[in-house]
Computed example of a mutant assay.
Amino acid sequence: MKPEISDSLPITDPVLQATLEISKSAREQAQAVVDLYAKSLEDASGGAIPVEVLGQLSKEQKLLMTYLAQLRGLHRNSHLRHRKTKTQTLESKGQVDSLHLHLQNLLYEQRHLEGEIAACEGFEHTYQSLPLIPVEEFLAQHPELQNSADIDEDALMVARINHERAEREALEQQRLELQKRKTKLISENKKRREDLANLDKDLEKFIDAAKPIQKMFDKVA
């Protein structure tokens, strides 16, 4: 006979279903033994219970003990299964906790990387403040780029930066050449000043040396 199982809490485990069935059979058998014993006492009216009734009671009690033995076996097996399930549950919980911790680490790393990406996207690079020539003027100087289908905004910016670098390098080269010329002119001017200073000294010596001759000419005159 199938046990009555609540629809709100269905039991599908075969061992538990068997336990419920044996439990119900044991309960019904116990009630049958009690009823039979009570009826035997009532029929005996205070006298001795007939032997055949005692035999029937003995059979019913043996059947009840069989049910109880089966229940004890099922209980023991259920206890062992419970311990095994508990161990497996703890192991699974440990795995879930480990996976949860790993997930938290991944989420933390994801938030960190998203922050780094946002910082990079919002970073104001130096090239953004470079005094580049206007795009129209640059394209006018490089007409080959106007008809290029492959060039995009980033490639155009790189080309403009390279152009600016080339212009600055050319200007720097001119500056260095002018600096060399300036240094050379300064050196030549310094040499000339030294030559003029030496000439002034020579003239002063010549004038000083000519003073006695000039006096002699003055006397003769």
Rank of each mutant, 00 (worst) to 15 (best):
C120Y: 10
L99A: 14
H79I: 08
A69P: 00
L99N: 10
L106Q: 06
Y67W: 00
K39S: 07
Q56F: 00
A44G: 01
E42F: 10
S78E: 08
A118S: 15
E52K: 08
T85C: 15
P50S: 07
E116G: 02
G47A: 07
Q70T: 08
L74G: 08
I117Q: 12
L74A: 04
E124N: 12
L99Y: 10
H79S: 13
S129F: 00
G73M: 13
L57G: 01
L54S: 03
L130F: 07
S58C: 06
R81V: 02
H75V: 09
N77K: 15
S40Y: 03
S45D: 10
G55S: 07
Y127P: 02
E42N: 13
T87R: 12
A69F: 09
G122E: 14
N105D: 13
E121T: 06
L68H: 08
I49G: 01
A118L: 14
Q110K: 06
A44H: 01
P131M: 03
Y67D: 00
L90N: 13
A118E: 15
A48S: 13
L101C: 11
V96Q: 14
F123Y: 14
G46C: 05
L130S: 03
G94W: 01
L90Q: 11
Y108F: 08
D43I: 02
K84C: 03
E91P: 01
H112W: 02
N77P: 02
G73F: 13
P50Q: 05
N105H: 11
R72P: 01
R76S: 09
R111V: 06
H75L: 15
S58H: 08
L99W: 09
R76P: 00
L106V: 06
G47I: 06
L54D: 01
N105F: 07
L90E: 14
M65K: 05
L130R: 02
L74N: 05
D97H: 04
M65A: 10
P131S: 05
S40L: 05
H100D: 10
G122A: 15
T85Y: 14
G122K: 13
